[in-house]
Design a protein around this nucleic acid. Structure first.
Lengths: 222, 222, 222, 222
DNA sequence: CATGAATGAGGTTTCATTCAT
DNA sequence: AATGAATGAAACCTCATTCAT
């Protein structure tokens, strides 16, 4: 319906500056911020990496803080999208619950271990004292929404009798914790790449424990 | 009597500079780094907070990076000591396992939510890219040693038949994950103080799930 | 009319920054370096004297060492130009050789005693250990080229029978030495202004001795 | 007569501090100043090189400027002693004047090209603007006294009919100039070691020219 | 709209110098 | 008399930010 770039270019309307430059700047900003940290990252470096001049960056984003927020928000969007897509696989069809959870678990775990995700979390932790509103930006976009979506799906499974009756939010919290908690140590906070087999093992263990507590009533576990 | 060099002045023995100033600098450094982040923290601010002159800081620690490492290491020592003291309460006496675990769990959770601990974790996440050796400093001092100690205790409980037979390291990992994972969200990465009642609730839920998976064979759970 | 990049703005062509500021900085740098020495000279002082901000200096020259080299090179250019102009007066026309040499000698001596020349030599001596390449910068630009030019002219005079047959480079070296050597003591290395009459006397004595050794064969000297 | 170090040690009386440490400090100071220049030389480095503690340096010399002056003066003493010893060889015995002058010239030239002499001259040139009194210190100790001594000897030779009648100071100035002038270029201000053969050549040429002007009246030169 | 050049402020680090031992 | 530790001042350099073009 919308020709890609018609003469009156609709892609030039959002925010100031050409939209492609804006995107290039955002990408470069996230890369550089992730690599060097907020304070050490130089706006000139970001501009260079984006292939634009420094004032262009300021033209688009006003100042460094804003640029940082925008870069974080953009990556939080990406992370949320990935996670939500994974959670949606938790459809209540006839598949065995364990298989279902292990499938979703492994995908979640892989998202969690993605380089960009580690970078995002690191930046979050790092600059939270200076940017208290970051938590709202990200919670509104990623972690919470994912937990909620997970809770939704678990609730449906519970209603369908495939899981014990439970507080679905609590269940979602604990499933997340079981999946990601052990990775923190094994990935050395993102500085070590966790091999696939380890990811699978962690996932299976997490799902096993989860099902012990939340599996269907009469399930004989393990 | 012995002239120029007194035989044993205990306040002059370790590293350079007077030992009390050194300690004051370390404390101030951790405070300021935690408040402002590594890059934004000014050495002058640290010196002022420690009540010494700037060159004194450099006399003791050489440069800012070294000071940072030393401050992190000192606080990691503190954290490890606290956590180990808690884990040692997991003695295999006659107390009911659930009560035992809830006691230890609640103390661990409280350590985890301590302001200094959040600060330590934030700094760790934040500067890990710039200081890759931080992970060794801290793993050698805190997280790993605690997990191992916990595994030791769980192994004994398992041998005593108070827990199911299991891989104790896996069990320790999962108990930790169940205790701390939900707090990450609720404490908003340390920017919100979690009320005591919530801490207790999280602990109870964690222990409940843990015991579903690792409790004694015939335990009637919940 | 031509849009973004004007075809030829002559004030924007050479190296970075506006050319006039660059020149002002170079002049200020030489003045301050000469007055205070390399290490004691503050970049802020140079910037102030040039009427620009400190970062502008760094924008143009990168760092203090580079600025120093550039300032030295610029003044070496000036000195060489002055000296070469003087040497060119040594044309082999019909004038009496003694008159010719005394004219040139006095001009050379005056160049040599110029404040800037003393400053240049002082800086050269002073910082040669730290900047070994200075010697190439200056030799390529001043002293050597002048000696060679002088040798060239003396060679022509020799060929014209106005001087004895000789090694012209040797002759040039000795003429220089006779002209400048005695000034070193009398000018107290540049801290005392040598009066004109003394300059003339030194010149005459130098030329007299020079002609004793290199004057035309049958010349009755003095 | 004086036992080297009798119980009541007379070598402890001059200036403050033990005299050997004082000497060690002076030597270290000259070395370091020569290597790094006045401003860049750190008092701590000098102290370390002398094997004493920093406050000891201050105890002996008061402050850095004083230390510098003392170090310069000490080396100027050394240089003067060497030069005077050489000049004294110019005794008016029966030796041929040319041989005599070439002998003295070569020794003078070798003193002039000594590493320490170059260092001394460099420091002199370098810091003359900051320490105007250096010139008096050194002129009172080295250059002038040497020129005067040389003039004395030349005067005697002149009286003895071995040299033309002349102003001996002028002659001494010119002889010095002819000897040292060409070396400035060839030694690249002290950064290049001039080979012995070149020293001899320069000396011979200088003496030849000198004798053309100041040799005995009827001398047939070269 | 995009850019090269310029700026004001601030950061880490070093150094000469002085106490207290 | 000699030293380890501490200090105040200042230096070099970088950066976020803004004009003119």
């Amino acid at each position: 319906m919308t020709g890609a770039t018609p003469p009156a270019d609709p892609s030039r309307l959002v925010s100031r500056g050409r939209i492609d430059k804006r995107r290039a700047i955002l990408a470069a900003a996230f890369t550089v911020f992730a690599r060097e940290g907020y304070a050490q990252a130089g706006v000139s470096v970001i501009a260079a990496e984006a292939g634009v001049a420094k004032p262009t960056v300021y033209h688009h984003f006003g100042d460094k803080e804003n640029l940082f927020r925008a870069a974080i928000a953009a990556d939080a969007d990406r992370a949320m999208a990935e996670n939500l897509a994974v959670v949606e696989r938790l459809s209540a069809d006839g598949t065995d619950v364990r298989v279902l959870l292990e499938d979703v678990g492994e995908h979640l775990v892989r998202c969690y271990c993605d380089d960009r995700s580690w970078a995002l979390r690191r930046l979050l932790y790092a600059e939270l004292a200076r940017f208290p509103d970051l938590i709202d930006i990200v919670r509104g976009r990623a972690t919470d929404r994912v937990t909620e979506a997970l809770a939704d799906r678990l609730a449906r499974l519970s209603l369908a009798g495939r899981l014990r009756r439970c507080d679905p939010v609590e269940a979602a919290e604990q499933l997340s914790a079981l999946l990601t908690g052990p990775l923190e140590g094994r990935a050395r906070l993102g500085t070590r790449r966790v091999p696939e087999t380890e990811l699978s093992a962690v996932t299976r263990t997490a799902v096993r424990t989860f099902l012990c507590a939340y599996g269907p009533e009469v399930a004989e576990v393990v």
